[in-house]
């Protein structure tokens, strides 16, 4: 009976955070005696270690009972430390007003104490780790601290990471909204995603359609490319052919455009030396002042290619 009283007494005293070092040796011998006389349902581990001496029993008890008594004392010890940490962190960021800070710290320390008392001492390390993790995730980016402190509750690393992720997603959504035309008119994420999907699909269909169109249109273009490849194998023959069918304005136009092309290609010449391979005959055109004899079709193809490249230039 004495043991039961003492146990109740201890349970009552726990909320006041008595020091466990004082508390346990005071009540231990009585409990030990009680468990000797009667089978105590409260402490089965005491009956198992009946024949052992008193000192190991107290050791076992203090170690085992740490969940109830010593953890509360640990919480009592650690609560001011945590408050200091949090306060120092808030001082570092300097974003939060004092009223919210005080409210925040009190609520947090209360919740920490509750979570600390329930999971029985083993969770202490996890809690510390959590705290450290949240601090590590907070330190590199100070922008999120503001958001976290404004809402008082979700401070563990999971909800912090979730918030960071949500912010990233909304930022990218905004970026996509700028890219996709007509996307800023719709509201809601699902509609926006549908709009984006439609746009990507339309672009892919456009690529397919345009490739078909180029395939149907392009024999001339292809002929020119092949002529380029063929001509570059025999440049001397090309130059030795006398001038035949080129009118003056056509050649001047050709030369001027070819010069434009040459300047634009010299810009990217160092990165793409193969371009000269394709565009080589155009150069020889301009250098020989239209003196190269080509059929009218070939000349037209050269003009075509220059037009193609010049019309490509504006969006580049």
């Amino acid at each position: 009976m004495m043991a039961a009283f003492s146990y109740d007494d201890q349970e009552e005293q726990q909320p006041f955070f008595l020091d466990s070092a004082n508390c346990i040796p005071l009540f231990m011998p009585q409990q030990f005696n009680a468990s000797n006389s009667s089978s105590s349902s409260f402490f089965p581990y005491l009956s198992s270690s009946d024949q052992a001496s008193c000192c190991p029993v107290t050791g076992v008890r203090s170690a085992y009972d740490g969940g109830s008594s010593s953890s509360s004392s640990a919480a009592n010890e650690e609560a001011p430390v945590k408050g200091n940490k949090r306060k120092s962190r808030d001082d570092e960021t300097g974003l939060i007003s004092t009223a919210t800070e005080s409210k925040d710290t009190t609520g947090l320390s209360k919740s920490k104490k509750q979570t600390k008392r329930s999971p029985r001492g083993v969770m202490k390390k996890a809690d510390e780790k959590k705290l450290r993790g949240s601090k590590a995730s907070l330190n590199p980016s100070d922008g999120y601290v503001h958001v976290r402190a404004r809402r008082g509750q979700a401070t563990d690393s999971h909800s912090l990471a979730e918030r960071v992720r949500r912010e990233k997603i909304s930022e990218r959504m905004k970026m996509l909204q700028g890219l996709v035309p007509g996307c800023d008119k719709v509201t809601g994420k699902a509609l926006m995603l549908d709009e984006i999907i439609n746009y990507v699909q339309s672009l892919q269909n456009q690529v397919e359609f345009l490739s078909m169109k180029i395939a149907s249109l392009s024999p001339i273009l292809y002929d020119f490319n092949v002529d380029c490849v063929d001509c570059i194998n025999q440049p001397q023959e090309l130059r030795s052919i006398p001038q035949m069918l080129s009118s003056v304005e056509q050649t001047s136009l050709l030369q001027e455009k070819a010069f434009d092309n040459a300047t634009s290609y010299q810009v990217m010449d160092h990165s793409t030396p193969q371009l000269m391979h394709v565009q080589g005959p155009t150069f020889s055109f301009s250098q020989d002042h239209g003196g190269t004899a080509l059929q009218l079709s070939a000349q037209r193809q050269g003009f075509l290619d220059q037009v193609g490249f010049l019309s490509m230039c504006p969006f580049q």
């Binding site: 672009l203 180029i214 001339i220 019309s311 490509m312």
Partner: peptide, 18 residues
Amino acid sequence: LSVQVKLMQSIADSASLC
């Protein structure tokens, strides 16, 4: 993709022009 579509469009336009 939009850059590619513009490029192909310009090629197709120039080819049809020529």
